[in-house]
Amino acid sequence: MPELIAPIAGNVWKILVAVGDKVELDDELVILEALKMETPIYCDDAGTVTAIKVKEGDAVNEEDVLIVID
């Protein structure tokens, strides 16, 4: 089951999908905020979102799982 991991540490600024959504390769799923800059995180696989592990405003570390995709 592919997972979307955080490539950099920061805060979760916006989550653009919900559980059950179908996503395509290169969709913007999450926007992280680090050093006052918004960084969009793109989907690496196509599939369905099965779980969202973070909420908006959470602080995440590098390598943390953000979203699980089936």
Binding site: P7, I8, A9, D26, A34, L35, K36, M37, T39, P40, Y42, D44, E62
Partner: peptide, 26 residues
């Protein structure tokens, strides 16, 4: 700091959107 690092990150992600240079540039 950190304007230049942000700028690097931005230009890097324009070339390859999966390139997250922010921390490397710091």
């Amino acid at each position: 700091v950190p304007m230049a690092a942000r700028c690097v990150h931005k230009v890097g992600s324009e070339a390859n959107r999966r390139n997250y240079l922010l921390m490397f540039a710091m």
